[in-house]
């Protein structure tokens, strides 16, 4: 149980039988009225954001949430399979659980799987992944300064904007948060 002054940004809570993460918490009080903690919470399953207010006497249940680093094994079109490299335990996630991370899914790469009540609910990619370009227009030699870009399709099917000098077959580092090209991967 969390009291109102333990409701802080980043804390994961269970409200209306669903898991949420607090994205903002503030102290509010109408002049003569009672004090509240107002929280903005993001649903950990479907991502919607709502607001709630709690008075000082109320408590909120802390969500029983576990994050595990797991390796992506393969997707079979219906499920995406991950494995705990320590215990070899495997879980299968649905397309909606994988969500947008599907653009950054690479076999052998490690992802954070979030479990709520022992069931996987969401997936977080590493901040950067290295992916191979499977399709783009030929590179223009020497153009490393103009800032112009062209679309490139990655091995995952995602499209990112890359500088003109980048070629098909190149491995590039992508920021998974912004979906932006960072640099060509070395080696």
């Amino acid at each position: 149980m969390l009291t109102h002054n333990q409701l802080r940004q980043g804390t994961r809570v269970e409200i209306d039988d669903l898991p949420w993460i607090i994205v903002d918490a503030s102290f509010v009080k109408p002049g003569k009225g009672q004090a509240f903690t107002k929280i903005k919470i993001k649903n950990l399953i479907d991502g919607r954001v709502i607001e709630r207010t709690y008075k000082s006497s109320e408590t909120v249940v802390k969500a029983s949430i576990v994050d595990k680093d797991m390796q992506f094994l393969y997707g079979d079109g219906e499920f995406w399979h991950f494995m705990d490299p320590a215990s070899y335990e495997q879980v299968a996630m649905t397309k909606s659980q994988v969500g947008d991370v599907i653009h950054w899914l690479k076999e052998q790469e490690s992802y954070q799987v979030t479990f709520w009540k022992e069931k996987p609910i969401s997936l977080t990619p590493p901040p950067f992944v290295i992916l191979t370009i499977t399709q783009c227009e030929p590179g223009i030699k020497g153009d490393t300064v103009s800032g112009a870009t062209k679309p490139a399709i990655l091995q995952t099917g995602a499209t990112v904007k890359v500088p003109l000098f980048v070629n098909e077959g190149d491995r590039i580092r992508v920021n998974t948060k912004t979906g932006e090209y960072v640099e060509r991967a070395k080696g």
Partner: peptide, 24 residues
Amino acid sequence: LNEVLRPGDDRPALVDRLFVQRLE
């Protein structure tokens, strides 16, 4: 408030909550 009544909710408590959550 997009909520269901909680135990102990009376008119002053709900109006205060609406004040900070909706009106302000």
